[in-house]
Structures are given as C-alpha cells and as structure tokens.
Simulated scan of single mutants.
Amino acid sequence: MPELTEIVFRDGGKVYSFDPDGLKLDAGDKVIVRTKRGVEMGKVVVGSHEVPEEEVVQPLEKVVRKATSSDMDSASRNRKLAARAARVCEERVEEYGLDMRIISTEVVFDGSKIVISFFAEERIDFRKLVEDLARKFRTRIEFRQIGVRDEARLIGGHGPCGRKICCTAFAGDQQPVSIKMAKQQQLPLNPMKISGLCGRLMCCLKYEHNAYVEFKEKAPAKGTRVNTPRGEGTVVDFLVPKEKVLVDLGEGHQVEAGLDEIEPPKKPDKRGRGRQRG
C-alpha cells in the first residue's frame, strides 16, 4: 500500500498530504517539501503511514528531506526578516494613511517572497506600498486580504472555555458554522454566549453538531411516553453529552436514562374475560 504523511505549514493551518518517499517520519518532525509557493518547511502532524490506494488523492508531492541544521538556520533568518518587514510595513501603512491592519508577515523558505496578510473592511489600493517594500527588501511582495476568522486563527487567543481557540489549537480546514447548529444544541441565541473572539459563531458548534443530530435520530421525541427502570414517564429533555434523556415520572420526580434503559410503555391488555353463561 502507498504511504502518506500529513503536514502543516503553520499552527492551526490546513493539513496537506505528502508522499514521505521512503522516509520514516514522526509527528513533530520538520521537513522540506515543494508546493505551489515553492520550497517550504513544514511540520509533520501525522507520521508516515500506509493507506489504501483509493484514499490517495493525486497528484501527490514527495517530501524532499528532513530539515537539516542548515535548514533550521535559514528558517530562523526568515523569521527575523519577517519581523523586520512587519515593522516597516506597519510604519508605511500609517504613513500612507491606509485603512488596513497587518495580521502576519511570512518569508517563504527560499527567501524569494514575503507574504503579508492583512485585514480591511473595504478594498485597499496598496500598489504604492508594494513598490516601496519591494525596493526596501529587494524581493517579491505579496499581500493577502483575510477575513475575521483567519485573523483570529493567526493571532490566537483563549475562548470562554479557557482553552486555546479551536482554529489555532486544531489543524485543519475551517468549516462553516450556522445558527441552526446552536439551535440544535439548545444553546441560548445570545451573540455574547455563542460568538468567538472573531465575532462569528464559535467553531466548536460545528464539532459537536453531528453528535446532536445522531443522538436525536436515535432518541424518542420530547413528549414521548417511555418506560424506565424507575417507572413510566415522559421524555422532557435530551442530555446529549451523557447520551441520556431526562424523563419526568410525575409528582416532581425526574430521572436520567440511557437509550438502552428505556422502551415504549406496554399497551394495556384489552382482552376482556367473557361472561359465564348460567
């Protein structure tokens, strides 16, 4: 079977599949690969592993090599250059009075290009800025306008749960999130409660959505009469994280019951005894 390895180019970024080309790679290894942007350094998030042929999406680029000490030195120089480019860019943005916010600056591994990500509410004419920076750093300058979700992912932070925001902590594609997901999970539709640092709906609503959908497909609807080990009652709520339902037994008594503990109430026996003939 063919082998794959999964690689990211920044924390929380999209995961890309590569052919390890016989290299034994482990999670955390730094590697050099070729991409559409040129030669880049990436980090392995899933080591070399075999996959069925039908799961391989072609064309598949090969890993060039594990990063050497020289490669690591180059990456360090690039980070320093990126930091200097960011400072100069911010100064020029203020000087030219451009209504844009610089979010991140990156120098591609071979030093052939500086990529600057920015946020702006409207279209910005930054041609003069590009020319100025190109003269200053004697390399290609590429500006990328990003949205608020990308801004939060690049900057990072902590959500109301106290953990790193999902788009930074978990590598992968950003999935669309809808208000329907919040309703499905019976969350209060208060923007302050269900919005992330970016001001949009929290990514974690997407992660738990399928669990709620699948549970509700298996569970009896609210209002359904069921039998539990504690007696017969009515389903009044879903406790999805516990994979249980809340059943009202009447007279103020409620119990939690798993789906394997409940069953439809037994129908009363309608067969009556015939009258004896005298």
Rank of each mutant, 00 (worst) to 15 (best):
L259M: 05
V235C: 11
T224I: 08
E40A: 03
I141T: 02
K14Y: 06
L154D: 00
G97Y: 05
D29V: 02
G231C: 07
V245K: 09
D73Y: 07
F143Q: 13
A86C: 07
C167W: 00
C203T: 00
K270M: 14
F126E: 05
T105S: 14
A86G: 03
V39P: 00
V255G: 00
K180Q: 14
T168E: 08
R225K: 15
L60M: 07
Q184S: 08
G13N: 01
G196K: 07
R10E: 08
H158R: 05
V108N: 08
V247L: 09
K43W: 04
M181H: 00
L4E: 04
E40L: 07
F109K: 01
G42E: 00
L133G: 01
G157Y: 09
D269M: 05
R92F: 11
I103C: 09
K62W: 02
K66A: 04
V130P: 04
R138M: 08
E256H: 11
K128P: 02
K30S: 11
R123D: 04
F9I: 03
P229G: 05
E214T: 13
R10N: 12
G13I: 01
E106Q: 10
K270P: 04
V45R: 10
V88T: 11
I114Y: 01
G38S: 10
D29E: 01
L25Y: 06
Q175V: 13
L23A: 07
D29I: 02
V45Y: 07
F143E: 14
F143G: 12
E54A: 08
G162R: 08
R277N: 05
R273F: 10
A211M: 15
E50W: 09
M100L: 14
R87E: 15
E53L: 14
I124A: 06
P176M: 12
F126K: 04
L259Q: 03
T35K: 12
S74I: 14
E208I: 03
F143W: 09
V226M: 01
A257N: 11
G147W: 03
Y212M: 09
V88C: 11
Y212A: 10
V31W: 00
M1Y: 06
A219L: 04
N210T: 13
K242H: 13
A182L: 06
E53W: 11
R149D: 09
R34M: 10
R271H: 14
I7A: 10
Y16M: 07
K242N: 11
D71I: 02
R144H: 09
F9E: 03
L129A: 13
E214A: 13
L187S: 06
P52W: 13
E256V: 07
S74P: 01
L249N: 08
R34W: 05
D19K: 10
R77H: 12
T228D: 09
R230K: 14
G162S: 07
A219P: 01
I179W: 05
R140M: 11
D260C: 05
H253F: 08
D19F: 08
G233V: 01
Y16D: 08
G274M: 12
L81E: 15
G12E: 03
L23V: 01
